[in-house]
Design a binder for these strands. Structure first.
Lengths: 242, 242
DNA sequence: CGACCGTTTGACGCAACTCAACTTCGGTGG
DNA sequence: CCACCGAAGTTGAGTTGCGTCAAACGGTCG
């Protein structure tokens, strides 16, 4: 059931046929021939939660698409204080064109499924396929919008609003349909309390207290620490001040 | 002395000949013919400090290059809390392709000189000139890097470090040479204390106290509230925890 | 001159941090 | 099977960095 029906499905590389994000990520810009070229140099693989994908200031020569799971992007000060500066969900593109040195750290927050390709191949195809470059520009602009939204959260929201904003953000990314409706949303938290704290610029204890507060107010339900149910996402939005 | 010597200077539009940023901003991607096309629809003008350039959720149909001065990009919560999410210096491009509705507010922080053109012209040229799209991608990637750097500042630095980081950021943007050397840097602050507070996620009073502290420690000198001298930018960097 | 704006300075309060104890849960091995 | 362990999370008590409120200062403009 994973195989999509395409007009020229037979031309589509085997690796790509069962790919859930083929039409969504940057690959959506490519035709069958271009997909063949790219897939020749691509490989899918899974990494466990906690694995480091890109080390800070490491030389990067491969890019990836996130097929499933969540990747956290973080920065650190010399004394160890850490800040998560972005979360990548499927079908996000992972990599920084025009710079071989990474300025941040990419770690799998959950088990992650990736499709990787050499940077050189993508860079060559960007020359040939303007639509590919355009997709990258669009994704980068979206990430910039998200980063700026989060700056407002980091700089101006209270701890309670920050935690609600985070739960809201994950809900919207895991279930894009949910954000519009008002029905219940349920998911497994992709991050530990420590990660959430690093994403929100708070401490573990403050995150824990605010989660408890939201639970007692009936805004969320929590089971086994990680399973979250949001009965009314609109109400959560109010607490997040969105 | 403003007129640059080019091989085909006579082909360069009059409007562009004296332009200080022509080779740096997105215009650097264009040849003489393309510059002529663009300049036919362009106009330079100045706006006073405090003028609004783009209102939040306003329909945007023109883009601009910043030729001189500083533009602040900000976001606001419904109750009035505000966060500046970016500063644009020359020769930055001002606008958000692929979206006609602005998600933020652009206000001149100082007197600003702009070169504006209709969005439709840029969008058409992006189709024809891949190098233009590439420049936009590069600028967007740089802005994303800066936004993420600032997220670390907002989420994890102390008030003292935040203020030092801000003074350092302005120094580097106003005098790009200065950042490498260790010599003194002097500039006029482009932002009021209120703006600085909104950029750092602090209050006016805290910004003022931290500036006073840096002054008393000899890290900076302040004259007439706005004129800043940094005797040793490396030392400022230490206080900023960079 | 007085009104006003941007800024500084001081006194005080509180939201979030720190430190510490405790609980829960999954895994592991005797 | 239970005992033990470490990792993750919760809860409480006390502290503190920054916010709030208030007053005063200096420059500018009508």
């Amino acid at each position: 059931m994973n195989v999509r029906q395409d007009i020229h499905n037979s031309d589509i590389p085997v690796l790509c046929r069962s790919c859930e994000v083929r039409h969504k990520g940057v690959c959506g810009a490519l035709n069958a021939d271009q997909l063949v070229t790219l897939s020749k140099h691509s490989s899918k693989y899974r990494v466990a939660a906690g694995e480091e994908l890109v080390a800070d200031s490491e030389h990067v020569s491969t890019y990836s698409n996130v097929l499933a799971g969540v990747v956290k992007l973080s920065k650190m000060l010399s004394d160890g204080r850490q800040q998560i500066v972005g979360l990548q969900f499927a079908p996000d593109f992972l990599g920084r064109p025009f710079r071989t040195e990474s300025s941040l750290n990419a770690v799998a927050a959950t088990e992650v499924s990736l499709c990787s390709f050499p940077a050189s191949v993508i860079e060559r195809m960007m020359e040939e396929v303007p639509e590919l470059e355009r997709r990258l520009l669009k994704q980068t602009l979206n990430e910039l919008d998200e980063a700026r939204d989060w700056m407002l959260t980091l700089g101006r929201k209270t701890a309670a609003e920050k935690v609600a904003s985070f739960l809201h953000l994950v809900a919207v990314n895991i279930d894009p349909e949910a954000s519009v409706g008002r029905g219940p949303v349920a998911y497994d938290l992709p991050l530990t309390r420590a990660d959430i704290a690093d994403f929100l610029g708070l401490t573990i204890e403050t995150v824990s207290r605010q989660m408890t507060k939201l639970r007692k107010e009936g805004v969320i339900e929590i089971e086994h620490n990680r399973q979250i149910t949001i009965p009314d996402i609109g109400r959560l939005g109010l607490h997040a001040n969105i």
